[in-house]
Design a protein around this nucleic acid. Structure first.
Lengths: 257, 257
DNA sequence: GCAAAATTATCACAATACGAAAAAAATTGT
DNA sequence: ACAATTTTTTTCGTATTGTGATAATTTTGC
């Protein structure tokens, strides 16, 4: 827990991401971070003059335009998203209309959607939303990552929320969980229904780097069209997309560019 | 140009936004920033372990998932975007189909789109793209901000790129520019055609905070439908949207919430 | 397996980040 | 318009730590 001044600055910035709170005053942040008011003012000034936060009215700060600028650069330049785009589009073309394809990443012990592809835009209520961290035990895109994590890590997550693991059908104790993770891993792609909200069904396959799992590609379909027939057709499609992504990621690493 | 260590850290992060380059090695960043290699390693480690950058292969760093997380929070929580959403949608409903509504902000001496509303998604080629800074002299959404800036600032920008100002019809010298800015300011909304690419036309109105201009709301239409008749109908619509936004921003400031 | 590159650790010192308190500036109430 | 708050910046002395150079270690490419 030794922290230097740069880490403190970033921790202040992450206040705007972590908490449900979208705006912070200097005083609030000061007590929350355990930093003196004068120093917190210095941090706020630094972040504000770089555009990462912005005072939309006196004393109240929110995230600033520099975030948008960075996000655009990421959208355009991220190698994983770039590699995924065509694969996801092709996968989507074989799926029923109103389906969407999502690319997720393992991040900070959670799962975060980093890219979406869809034919026609429609607000999907409760699902993987770009940029929203989701737990590892809920939904296909998460579970497939969990199942491919080293057992040590999986166990640590299980110990942290055993009730949740049970609630989402992964087992009531570690022995059961271990068995169901092995079972999930043995399938080419994994399918869930109604685990985030009740209206969607997910089909997901893992993406590997070299040794460890990086994330997952998934199809999310309206639960009404996710019949046994449809999902059994799509399972190998999604599995192939995952394998193709894995291949591309390894190829990328070799290009060293 | 006195810079502390936090500012240096943010400057390193902004390398990933400023330059055309989307990926950096430690050495490249080290020479570019004029910081020793060992210290640059420390900065990279700090940013990486907070998720702002990520090594997608050994030695090559790109922006990390934390950016996406912050961007989502901004999209959801930003007071200006929140205030704009309904106004933009209503404005859009009176416009020809295939039009889009954009919300721009004055940022770092440039103009950046921070939010878009559209009926049906279609990739608009060259226009205001969310997160891409644009110069003040090009396009309606920019010009309306420029025209409402304090003259001192406008003059400074003119001196910085007089040829560009002339190219986009603002005048060949400061006297002419000053006159055309006044002329632009006198209109309820300003209209341009084909200034970004050749296929779009823009109608924009300014948004004020209390005294200074914050940004602009605009309609972007396919140039083919932007007839005199259509634009003269839409001009007061956009102007009203700008005024409504101004009202909401001032109301927001008074709520102090 | 070995050479090369990437990353981390060590160290000594100057630079600066820090909190407390005071000063200045901006904002609000009346 | 003026006073009362609140917000923000400055000052200052000191202990902390950020820093570059170099070495040690780990990882990677072949």
């Amino acid at each position: 827990m030794k922290e230097n001044s740069q880490e403190r600055l970033l921790r202040l910035l992450s206040l705007f991401a972590d908490e449900e709170k979208g705006e912070w005053s200097v005083d609030e942040a000061s007590v929350h971070l355990g930093i003196s008011a004068s120093q917190t003012y210095r941090y706020f000034r630094t972040l504000a003059s770089a555009g990462y936060i912005s005072a939309y009215t006196t004393g109240r700060y929110v995230l600033g335009p520099a975030i948008i600028e960075l996000d655009r650069k990421l959208r355009i330049g991220d190698p994983m998203i770039h590699a995924a785009r065509s694969i996801m589009r092709e996968m989507l073309s074989t799926a029923p209309s109103a389906s969407i394809a999502i690319l997720c990443r393992y991040f900070r012990g959670q799962v975060m959607c980093v890219h979406e592809e869809f034919e026609t835009y429609q607000h999907h209520e409760i699902s993987y939303e770009r940029g929203q961290p989701r737990p590892l035990y809920q939904g296909a895109a998460s579970k497939v990552i969990l199942a491919n994590l080293p057992l040590r890590q999986a166990r640590a997550y299980f110990n942290h929320a055993p009730d949740k693991f049970n609630q989402f059908g992964l087992g009531a104790n570690w022995t059961e969980v271990k068995r169901s993770l092995r079972e999930l891993r043995s399938q080419p792609a994994i399918i869930t229904a109604g685990e985030l909200g009740t209206s969607a069904s997910g089909i997901s396959a893992p993406i590997y780097d070299d040794k460890r799992v990086l994330g997952s590609v998934s199809l999310v379909l309206p639960i009404t069209v996710a019949t046994e027939e449809v999902t059994s057709f799509l399972m190998p499609v999604v599995a192939a997309a995952g394998q193709e992504m894995t291949r591309k990621m390894q190829h990328l690493a070799q290009l060293q560019q």
